[in-house]
Nucleic acid binder design. Sequence first.
DNA 1: GGAGAAAGGGAGTAATCAGTCACTACTTAC
DNA 2: GTAAGTAGTGACTGATTACTCCCTTTCTCC
Lengths: 187, 187
Amino acid sequence: MGAAVLRKTAEERRREIIAAAFAEFAERGLHGASTDAIAHRAGVSQPYLFRLFGTKKDLFLAAAEHCYRITLETFLRATEGKRGDEALEAIGEAYHELLSDRQKLRMQLQTHAACDDPEVRALARRGFGQLVELIERASGADPGRVRDFVAFGMLLNVMAALDVLEAEEGWPRRLMDACRDVCHEEV
Amino acid sequence: MGAAVLRKTAEERRREIIAAAFAEFAERGLHGASTDAIAHRAGVSQPYLFRLFGTKKDLFLAAAEHCYRITLETFLRATEGKRGDEALEAIGEAYHELLSDRQKLRMQLQTHAACDDPEVRALARRGFGQLVELIERASGADPGRVRDFVAFGMLLNVMAALDVLEAEEGWPRRLMDACRDVCHEEV
DNA sequence: GGAGAAAGGGAGTAATCAGTCACTACTTAC
DNA sequence: GTAAGTAGTGACTGATTACTCCCTTTCTCC
């Protein structure tokens, strides 16, 4: 009786819960977000969330892993068949694609902030390391360029957290105006 | 009777509690740290902590402000009487001084991570903005250089969080090896 | 149609934790 | 000495929260 009760596969629920967790964790961090809020956002009961993920931290790890994976995939797709400066430029553009969704930048920051936990730290090292190595490999650029490039990514994370990415004036604007050429040779 | 009960001024206690809060918040973040642990570390009761700071968030704000202030002071001292590249180089060296105490780097990261709170965000914008403006003003460098410099600072925060500042090999080492020349002209 | 598996949740529980209250002990000024 | 102020805490409390027990409902396959 009543409307059809529309059930989904566990795998699909898992994806939906990770998406909800992503949003909550990105905003409030590992300790600031509550499993209640995540379950509610995902449209499931909180017990079912625990059924599928075991612990809050495991859910956080899943969300963080997801974050690294989609970033890595975005970069891989961008650099496909490219080399050197061309590849670096392509990653730069891909970065701007990520920029449109602040959640990803903030999630990365929250992952770094949660790194006093050994498991989180291990995941972050692996995920971040893969990104750096991809940039090194695909661009073939000298270490200084790679450093500037990666560092600029970290600056973007911070700007997203401070919510000054679209600032119209002052130091945030000056920093962002100087971003156009981050993937080109300077002077 | 008994050993002298050694009392201190409220001002001194305030400083000690901020120091303890700094350590706890830097490691575990605004939501991850407990006022109990902070009070215990500071050697006071938890009620007294609340007496002096009102709320946990106010204590966090005080600790974050302290973090920005000592960083700013370090930079100011370093650039005293210097101009241009010389000033930038001096700040670079001052950065290395901060590097020796990972707590400061991590606290900055935790402050950024807590920025979904409007008060924290306001403080972070102000504090971070002052640092950027000091670097702009003291160095007189072009926007690209300033951006690279500030961005590198953010990268250091992340490296501190991942605990790879002293890595002997792999991508962390390559990134850090490329750090020597961050305050010099390249190629 | 019935048996077994898989999806899903109602109603807890134990612990943690921010914040309060009411009180004691010491210090200073007169 | 005493009054007023300041340093300091033991013992709570109400709310939140991670996590569990056990039950119901739907699907699948014979």
